[in-house]
Nucleic acid binder design. Structure first.
Lengths: 344, 344
DNA sequence: GTGAAAGCGCTAACAA
DNA sequence: TTGTTAGCGCTTTCAC
């Protein structure tokens, strides 16, 4: 199984390798005599020639690929986003290198170095922290990049594709209020992420806008975005003397953790406490009790990120922009407060 | 942000680039005077040198990376397997290129060509079909490779890591029999995959072993591994005149489809029909009604596949081997037949 | 133990 | 329009 080289094609076509190179690249094809080009292309096809991407990359410092840095592929939030990105990029000949960081800064830094050495032409990061020097640094160096799902707080104004979290939280609060809830609490995600901080602030704001009690004790911070952290946070709320009949969780995993903590104490959903999630991750529509959650358009977030990155790759001078995609509330069987005693 | 090259290191250390290369590669370091080597390494560190993988790959035709070919990352079965593979490979300096094929042979073929051009040193395939000429071809060419989850039927005896599906099905049937079920049916997955065929045959065998009725009408074939196909298959079974009180599905998605079809007809699980899944995919433990399913060790399957691939990379002459990992039954609230009428 | 030379396969000045 | 030349950064014979 020998792979034809450009030189072999050139020899068979009776031209110099440089001419063959020109004839076989769309951008330079017009530089070469049409008949000659056709001959070269025919030979290339016969020999099953396709350019060696390694050699090309060494020469051009490009690679037709991008780096895709995510916390963890086993978080079901990410696969659909990844597919959205890949589908858009593949259509124009780009591949994605996927790297998991497990939220470890050093792993991420090493991955970025490694990807840059491989001449990736840009990055999509799903790992952004509000304070994220590495990303600021890359942005300052004009490395094409897009953030998905989360953004940084720095001055760099890095292009991003996120969901309208504030609107989503407002929808969730409104929904609960419409059901008759007046005592709502929040399981907030990590506050070093934009999603965690935005959703928390929006929660507090929505309570105020709806004239609901909004003492700071109505918010419990969770250390991670995990089910375990959600269960722990829910426990803290239940142990506090804050009365409530509904919880809005920072994401679906935290909401699942809330389910666990409630079940452990013999409390029922939504009879005793209503729980609303965020993200509408795959398969969350199957859980019991049915979970009302804020839907974000996963695949579309990825696809738009891919498009934004392509814009930058195609026109580096173009002023980068960010996108805020709409969220919707998916109601799956929440009800009003059945046990007013809990709202004492 | 300039990246130091080997030549710069060599110049600063006052040696020839070839010497620097030797000093900086573990395998050739012993060829060079210890003091010189130390000096070169010190300079390399000062300059933050790290070898350009593209140039190295062009020269050596290696790449420290492998290709990982899966049907679809959004199928929750795969991410944990991918993590298992990556964790093992990363520990020894390998990366994985992930490619989704969406079960399209042409996409897979193109991906393989592309990955080989990038000098991947081996492959892990999660896409194997029983009759899979492409994989046989690669095996015949002695390309290092491992199959995960599924295997081929060809003569090539390609190394694989799979779960003991037959044992898993036997466990499931035994469980249902112990609960009092005597009329069991099977939603079989695609029969061009080893998982689909093995589980179907094991089902039929288990019925026989338990002296249960086992007419061929007790098995409905599903075209794909999807929820939709499961719902359709379940519908076919319900419309037939085969009596049954329990269903064993070829995988969890088919089982979820069975849930859908049953719910649509107002039948309850497990009161009217018990459903058992297969694979124990992430989050399936949250669904309602609780799903009993056969657990396969996802991460470990991936990890073992990584190890098997490393064995081949490290010693190409070593006789390849395959692994069959144990399955366990995870019981989540199935009960015996409550409505004997259905078993008429 | 070290240096010289060559070349992996490709593309991009420059020259003709 | 085509060919010549050079080189991306590295490793690996071969010679000394």
């Amino acid at each position: 199984m020998h792979r034809a080289t450009l030189r072999e094609v050139a020899e068979r076509a009776g031209v110099h390798p440089a001419t063959a190179s020109r004839a076989l690249n769309a951008a330079t094809e017009s530089m070469v005599n049409a008949a000659t080009a056709a001959r070269i292309q025919k030979v290339a096809k016969e020999l099953g020639y396709s350019p060696n991407p390694i050699a090309r990359s060494l020469k051009t410092s490009r690679s037709s690929s991008i780096g895709l840095v995510i916390p963890d592929l086993t978080n079901p939030l990410f696969p659909p986003i990844v597919r959205g990105i890949e589908d858009v990029l593949r259509a124009v000949g780009y591949n994605a290198w996927i790297v998991n960081t497990d939220n470890q800064g050093d792993v991420e830094a090493a991955a970025v170095v490694s990807l840059r050495q491989r001449n990736v032409e840009g990055f999509v990061f799903a790992t952004a922290l509000l304070d994220h020097p590495l990303l600021e640094e890359l942005a300052a160096a004009s490395i094409p990049m897009v953030l998905v799902n989360r953004k940084t707080a720095g001055g760099a104004d890095i292009p991003s594709v996120t969901s309208d979290d504030a609107a989503g939280v407002a929808l969730a609060v409104k929904h609960l209020v419409d059901l008759g809830h007046r005592h709502i609490v929040h399981l907030a995600g990590p506050q070093d992420t934009s999603t965690g901080a935005t959703r928390r602030k929006a929660f507090r704001q929505a309570l105020e806008d709806n004239d609901l009690p909004h003492e700071s004790s109505r918010i419990t911070l969770c250390e991670t975005w995990s089910e375990e952290a959600g269960a722990h946070g829910m426990g803290v709320l239940l142990d506090s003397d804050t009365p409530f009949t509904a919880v809005i969780a920072g994401n679906d995993q935290l909401a699942l953790g809330a389910y666990d903590a409630l079940a452990e104490r013999g409390l029922r959903c939504p009879a005793d406490v209503s729980v609303v999630g965020f993200n509408d991750i795959p398969y969350i529509d199957k859980v019991f009790p049915p979970m009302t959650t804020v839907h974000i358009p996963h695949v579309e977030i990825g696809a738009e990120a891919g498009r934004l990155l392509l814009e930058q790759l195609n026109d580096p001078t173009r002023h980068p922009r960010s996108l805020l995609l709409p969220t919707t509330l998916v109601v799956r069987g929440s009800t009003g407060p059945a046990n007013p005693a809990r709202a004492a």
